[in-house]
Amino acid sequence: MPTPDYILELRKDLGQKELFLPGVTAVTLRRRDPSGQELPTPEVLLVRRADDGNWSSVAGILEPGEEPGIAAAREVLEETGVTAEPVRVTGVSDHGRVEYPNGDRCAFLDVSFELEFVSGEPYVGDDESVDAGFFPVDDLPQPFLEKHRERIEWALDSGAPARFRT
């Protein structure tokens, strides 16, 4: 999905000044094959980003008034066609500052989620990515966006409390 309309409206007034935005990272795990048998190694849903060619978890920006868990599931469905359900918050962190090729600047607060795969076969659902698929968590494709490796590890640590950097 392209830049949300509310951000485009803000940009009319603020230009390229830095915006502080809430975002979500949706780490969708598949632990069972289609027949219901447990996989030897969990698989994670990844997209290959159109902007830099890196593989990463699905991520996106919350819409005003949107619940973060709902946003995570929405982003997964929009970007990959996969239906997934939020299981838990795995961490809250500073995603860092980003400057886009057009000069727009943003800083993101990221709420990371573990999501459970429900159904669907991954496909490229928008212009933000060029590929999508499930991969064994111990054999991630390259090049890989390193900040997402930590978020995948958080999701794999079932039952652990949410992480907060101190």
Rank of each mutant, 00 (worst) to 15 (best):
Ala73Pro: 00
Thr83Arg: 12
Ala84Pro: 03
Asp157Arg: 07
Arg105Val: 15
Asn102Lys: 00
Pro161His: 13
Leu39Gln: 10
Pro136Tyr: 07
Asn54Tyr: 10
Gly15Gln: 12
Ala50Asn: 13
Leu29Lys: 04
His95Arg: 07
Glu85Ala: 15
Val24Cys: 02
Leu109Cys: 08
Gly15Trp: 15
Gly159Val: 04
Pro136Ala: 07
Val47Ser: 04
Glu99Arg: 15
Pro141Ile: 06
Ser57Arg: 01
Glu18Pro: 05
Ser129Val: 04
Leu8Asn: 13
Asp51Asn: 15
Ala73Asn: 02
Met1Leu: 11
Asp157Cys: 06
Arg105Asp: 09
Gly125Phe: 04
Arg149Gly: 02
Phe135Ala: 04
Phe108Tyr: 14
Phe144Cys: 07
Thr83Glu: 12
Met1Arg: 12
His95Lys: 01
Val87Met: 04
Glu153Phe: 11
Ala59Cys: 14
Thr166Cys: 05
Phe144Leu: 08
Glu85Leu: 12
Ala26Gln: 02
Leu46Ser: 00
Arg74Trp: 01
Gly96Ile: 08
Val44Gly: 03
Leu8Ser: 10
Val130Tyr: 06
Leu77Ser: 12
Val76Tyr: 03
Glu146Cys: 13
Val111Met: 11
Leu115Ala: 06
Arg151Tyr: 11
Gly91Ser: 15
Asp94Leu: 07
Glu116Thr: 09
Ala72Asp: 01
Glu66Asn: 01
Glu99Pro: 01
Phe144Gly: 03
Val137Asp: 01
Pro64Asp: 13
Val44Ile: 07
Arg74Asn: 01
